[in-house]
Design a protein around this nucleic acid. Structure first.
Lengths: 205, 205
DNA sequence: TAAGTGGTGTGATTTCTGTCACAGTGTGAG
DNA sequence: CTCACACTGTGACAGAAATCACACCACTTA
């Protein structure tokens, strides 16, 4: 896998260090990559696939915030002042996924030595921040029907498919809602000719 | 006003630049400091007072995300790749407030030259990010009664007063709810002996 | 083929929230 | 003092969403 093509902005020295220190890991679709509360040992650069980033509630719920695709990275793990910080978020593979794991001990050094890394971190933090702002918009200002439409469109975008292989229960979990509510809203969308419903599959029109 | 005491971590060279280039501004309580969509011309360092940061909805609503106090800074304005970016948020003075305005043109330069500035930016971004995560928690997992309690406690913390000078309408606006709902929930809190209600004032017990 | 499992459709009910309506009540301006 | 106005309390109602209950269907496995 030629990961250098996915991060073309990285400078030669940086590439060398990553080549030496980073480890590639693969995850199957559905696998949990990072749990809430777990110690952060490395930063993940996504090479292939899609990762979903969740916020978890102590008493049971989970809530999908955003996706990470090829060329993107987990913002939270890039700036760990302490070595012993724990994760505020949960990450799950949406598709089969390849990531490059870089030990957090290197972060400070990379930031100081490699301008291209520094810019990557800054840009990552900024775009994740903006994404969080739209998440807040979504739940603060919109009802479940609009949030569902947004969810389906985004999922189609990220997976580059118009037929979404999702059960109503999975959608309800991601939106922190309940299966019945989602089923009913989807039926309404079908009546408005926005989607066509099948078993374990939703077709966007 | 001796702002250097509020940012003791800044190194001498950085202090010199800020001294030369920054402008101090004062805002009265209630005044809007930055509007959504406005061009960002400078980054604000808070010296005194409290600033509330809002997310706005195109059709009317606003939603309080977090506060900025002395020693803190607006994360969004610190990393402006382009000179011509517009603000994604709205900022309003909660109390009478003093801020130091640093032109955004200097940002790149400061980041490269002054390690203490660089660390300040990184740390600012990180804490604002964490704060946004708890905002998401709040609205994704909690009902209005819990959100109201959180709101009151935080307001008391930030203003360092146990008697909050707020009308029910103001609270409703900050929570993107309605006055009647807040009135009723406050009454319930009063019955549970959590607060005592007065005109334009809420006493925390 | 029969039984079991997970996914889906749908009604009934309840809780939470937003909206409308309106009545008091404290405060400040004139 | 009195009038206007903003703030507060409350009832009635509507809609959104969660929950419970149950029927039905598609697919797998024995």
């Amino acid at each position: 896998m030629d990961w250098k093509k996915i991060f073309p902005q990285f400078e030669p020295g940086l590439i060398e260090v990553i080549e030496k220190e980073a480890v590639q890991k693969n995850f199957k679709a559905g696998e949990v990559i990072m749990r809430t509360g777990q110690y952060i040992k490395s930063t993940a650069l996504v090479l292939q696939g899609q990762i979903k980033i969740y916020r978890e509630n102590p008493d049971g719920g989970e809530f999908l915030m955003y996706y990470l695709g090829p060329g993107q990275a987990c913002a939270v793990s890039m700036i760990c002042a302490l070595q012993s910080e724990t994760s505020e978020i949960m990450a799950k593979a949406e598709e089969d996924t390849e990531v490059l794991m870089i030990p957090v001990q290197l972060m400070d050094d990379l930031m100081n030595k490699y301008k291209s890394w520094y810019q990557f971190v800054i840009q990552t933090y900024r775009s994740r921040f903006d994404e969080l702002l739209s998440v807040v918009d979504n739940i603060a200002f919109h009802n479940m029907d609009e949030r569902l439409e947004f969810y389906l469109k985004r999922h189609a975008d990220k997976t580059r498919k118009k037929t979404l292989e999702l059960s109503h229960q999975q959608i309800a979990d991601d939106l922190n809602s309940s299966r019945e509510v989602i089923s009913r809203l989807l039926k309404k969308m079908e009546q408005r000719n926005l989607v066509k419903l099948h078993r374990n599959m939703i077709e966007l029109l």
